[in-house]
Design a protein around this nucleic acid. Structure first.
Length: 643
RNA sequence: GCCGACGUAGCUCAGGGGUAGAGCGUUUCCUUGGUAAGGAAGAGGUCGUGGGUUCAAUUCCCAUCGUUGGCUCCA
């Protein structure tokens, strides 16, 4: 009997029932059969060698396909487990899934402490096993048999996993001497795994729960061709060069001091220059949108945070209160600006005519982050938010959201973040009791976010249950050089604080009403934003942000006077820079300016000094010719406009 | 906070039970050179900190602080 297989191009092939995806690939071409790794059958990823018994749609997956990679890496994880079991008898296996950039396997090594020095040995074993050309064989097993197998093998983790599975949907995969509980799918044979590299070893709790045993997680990556591995490793090298911690040091933007404390960045002059320019940029954008700047202190009485509710929730795990010498007063370093801003709101009674009230502050806050979480500028204990709180009526929510989205988009486009994700976090509809605020208001707010994002054609993902207890939110995420995802801007609706601080305004009906509050920070924190920006630009900041925009490079000491004159002239046009007066040759000065990523170099010697000119060289581009000083200013302004 | 790794000159790193080394940077001198590294000489380190073992510790052990890879958390 024949069945009909529909391929992605719409063509239909009739093949005998029980044919496999590999059979079909072979019938198309031998070459194709060699590169396919798995197949999508009716939208489910299957083994290539699993028989297809009914009419189906089929798309063949190669390593280049996302799902193909997953299959390949999943099979590699099994190979890793096989190698480890061979080398370390008696180990217990956790789980071994594929991830975005490879795979890992969680292992309980018992008393042995596995270290990366053992990678080589394991890699060799994996290669040896791969070259045995073993098939990955799928078998369906009953729950009883599955339990029997792993009881015999004394593998508690697998047994725990089986407990959660239903009889009839349990499958084993076997390659060589190694059998694993696995849903699959897998590649047909170990021989296609040609290049293997183990990358790191780390600890991970069984099932991600810190009450459980800590397992050793071994990360690796593998490829069907050796060349692909080399390319991948090069890419990782490149990413490392963009690491903001490294560039921050090299370009002298910021530093940390053990004496000052972990997670407390010290901004060096050049980093400060960038940061201040970003703040000026944001201030201007906010003034245009009707924000008012305020300034509030770095500490506040403990009672302030008791009122806000934060003390109950975070008090124990925060920096502890500062005590005054004589009275029994306790102050906390502010972990956020909103309670202060609520008090600003209460300064005098408000009328509906004053709403929306938008209070902005570059507010520095301190949070006691867990020590293991600290990371360069992206996760610190003291940071400055480009914070603002918008107090408005429920009906104004949507318009305010649209306005903030526009502001975020303005920031992203000015700074070239074209790849980001926007996440809408809503309530878990099944657990409405977990959230504060009326049903009616929640629905209004959630609708406002959804409508605002669609009005601005934002591509979003919606996560139910991810909302804060006090309101829904919209977050913007971007990835760093190493592919880790970080949250930047955020817009959050808050019903809680207006309640707790008993905020109100007089409506047109002459009655008191409760305002809604929106927390928003387009950059998120200055620290994290600049960290991401460093990686995004690789340290080649846009001209308007560069700490030093031009380097004046005199050919010899004779032209120092003229160089100073050039720099002063440019300073008058708000162009910043330096003169390199070292007793070095011009080639050397150029090299150093290029390495420190100064966007524009001005070479001046006899020819330039005589005619009030500069020879212009652009970072990464080279010589662009001679300009009179005045023409250079125009040229510079054109460069600025092009950004 | 948990598990692992690491901590040697300003930076990147080598070394190793008998009180330390390279390259780059820095300083001084020579060189005044036209588009990515001119030459020479010098300075610079209680080997993160505190204990322990030892005749002797920077090296081995323990603790602590910091950094880092993950895990958990994130107002």
């Amino acid at each position: 009997m024949n069945i009909k297989i529909t391929l992605p191009d719409g063509s239909i092939r009739e093949v005998p029932q029980g044919s496999t995806a590999l059979d079909i690939a072979t019938s198309i071409s031998e070459g194709l059969a060699r590169v396919v790794v798995s197949a999508k059958v009716n939208d489910e990823v299957w083994d290539l060698v699993r028989p297809i018994n009914q009419d189906s749609t089929l798309s063949l997956l190669k390593f280049d396909d996302e799902d193909g990679k997953k299959t390949f890496w999943h099979s590699s994880a099994h190979l890793l487990a096989e190698a480890l079991e061979a080398l370390y008898p008696g180990i217990k296996l956790g789980i071994g899934p594929p991830i975005d950039n490879g795979f890992y396997y969680d292992i309980d090594f018992g008393d042995h402490s596995f270290s990366s020095t053992e990678f080589n040995k394991v890699e060799q074993k994996m290669k040896e096993l791969a070259s045995q050309k073993n098939d990955y064989i799928r078998t369906e097993v009953s729950k009883a048999d599955a339990i029997a197998y792993f009881t015999e093998k004394e593998d508690p983790y697998k047994l725990e996993l089986i407990e959660g599975l239903n009889d009839g949907e349990i499958t084993f995969y076997k390659q060589g001497e190694f059998t694993d509980l696995c849903r699959g799918p897998h590649i047909p044979n170990t021989s296609s795994i040609k290049a293997i590299k183990l990358l790191k070893v780390a600890a991970a709790y069984w099932r991600g729960d810190e009450n459980n045993k800590s397992l050793t997680r071994i990360y690796g990556v593998s490829f069907p061709k050796a060349k692909m591995l080399t390319e991948h490793l090069n890419l990782l090298e490149e990413a490392k060069k963009r690491d903001h911690r490294r560039l921050g040091k090299e370009l002298e933007l910021f530093t940390f001091s053990e004496k000052v404390g972990a997670g407390l960045p010290l901004w060096l002059p050049k980093g400060t220059a960038i940061r201040e320019r970003l703040e000026t940029f944001m201030r201007k954008a906010q003034i245009e949108r009707g924000y008012q700047q305020v300034i509030t202190p770095h500490i506040g009485k403990k009672e302030l945070y008791v009122t806000s509710g934060h003390y109950d929730k975070y008090g124990e795990d925060s920096f502890q209160p500062i005590k005054t010498p004589n009275e029994d007063e306790e102050f906390l370093l502010k972990p956020m600006n909103c309670p202060h801003h609520c008090e600003v709101f209460k300064f005098k009674p408000k009328s509906y005519k004053e709403l929306p009230l938008r209070l902005a502050e570059f507010g520095t806050v301190y949070r006691y982050e867990q020590s293991g979480e600290l990371n360069g500028l992206t996760r610190v204990r003291g940071f400055t938010q480009d914070d603002a709180h918008i107090f408005c009526t429920p009906d104004q929510l949507k318009a305010e959201f649209v306005d903030v989205i526009d502001l975020v988009m303005h920031v992203f486009s000015k700074l070239g973040f074209d790849k980001f994700t926007a996440q809408i976090s809503l309530r878990d509809p099944d657990k409405k009791e977990k959230y504060i605020g009326s049903d009616e208001n929640w629905e209004k707010a959630e609708r406002a976010i959804v409508e605002a994002t669609s009005e601005r054609d934002l591509e979003t993902v919606t996560e139910y249950g991810e909302a804060a207890f006090y309101g829904p939110k919209l977050d913007f995420m971007v990835k760093d050089a190493l592919g880790r995802s970080w949250q930047l801007g955020t817009i959050q609706v808050d019903y809680n604080l207006p309640e707790r601080f008993d905020l109100d305004y007089i409506g047109s009906d002459n009655q008191k009403h409760r305002p809604v509050m929106i927390h928003r920070a387009p950059f998120g924190s200055m620290e994290r934003f600049i960290g991401i920006l460093i990686e995004h630009t690789g340290g080649n900041f846009p001209l308007w942000l560069s700490p030093e925009q031009v380097a004046v490079l005199p050919i010899s000491e004779k032209y120092h006077d003229y160089s100073d004159k050039v720099l002063k002239f440019l300073n008058n046009y708000d162009i910043r820079g330096l003169v390199d007066e070292r007793a070095e040759k011009i080639g050397r000065k150029i090299r150093d300016a290029e390495v420190s990523k100064i966007p524009v170099m001005l070479i001046v010697g006899e020819q330039e000094a005589e005619n009030d000119e500069v020879s212009v060289r652009i970072h990464g581009k080279g010589d662009v010719g001679k300009f009179s000083l005045q023409d250079f200013v125009s040229y510079f302004e054109t460069l600025l406009k092009e950004e």
